[in-house]
Amino acid sequence: MSTTATATTATATAGIGDRIPALNRPTAVLGAVIAAVAANIVVWLIGAAAGGSFEVPNGTEMQSVAPGGVIILSAVPLLIGLTAAALLSYRWVGVLRLAAITGSVLTVATIAMTVAAEFDTASTIALSVMHLVLVPALVIATEGLRRNLIAK
């Protein structure tokens, strides 16, 4: 087989996982949190522009979940989960794949709570998309960290 054919085959079989760089623990955790919060602020702005109020009835008054709630509810779970996975990876690198799967499933599953709440349609859609934004941030962070650890 010629060099050109080998290079073409290698390029064709390279997946997205091959493009994820190796990341150290602070970069993986903080980078994912910052990226997810920034992306969710953009989604919030789009949802607000679409007419979303991001308010839910709480007894006799309306409670707003944005923008502060968006930041806190994006950053805190991701920060806690990724920090726990990063610390556990000192002992067991496999925890990173487990964290990516578990975190992704929980992130998608919690969309049900958003749908069950009494948000307007634009807010419900935007908040649901915000849950989904956490998945790639989580997967890229854990895979980047894993690549760094297995390369050592």
Rank of each mutant, 00 (worst) to 15 (best):
N148M: 13
T142F: 14
T3C: 03
S123F: 01
T13M: 03
A75M: 00
G81Q: 05
A49R: 11
S53A: 08
T102D: 15
V33C: 03
A50F: 06
L45T: 13
I101P: 08
V65M: 08
T9E: 12
L132I: 06
T60Y: 02
V139L: 05
A116V: 15
V70I: 05
M130T: 06
A35L: 10
V93D: 14
L132K: 06
P136E: 03
K152A: 03
S128W: 02
E61K: 02
V42K: 09
G17Y: 02
T60D: 13
E61H: 02
V108F: 05
I16D: 12
L88Y: 12
I101K: 15
M1C: 10
I16H: 06
N58F: 08
V105P: 07
T13D: 04
A99W: 02
M130R: 03
R91I: 10
G52V: 04
T124R: 05
I41W: 07
V93E: 14
V56H: 04
I72S: 05
A85I: 07
T110Y: 12
G68Y: 00
T114F: 11
A116R: 13
I80E: 05
I46E: 07
T110Q: 15
M130E: 13
R25I: 08
L73G: 07
L134C: 09
A36P: 12
N148P: 04
L138D: 01
G81D: 04
A38T: 09
L45C: 12
L98G: 15
V76L: 00
V93N: 14
D120E: 09
V33D: 07
S128C: 04
A117E: 10
L149R: 07
L87Q: 14
G68W: 03
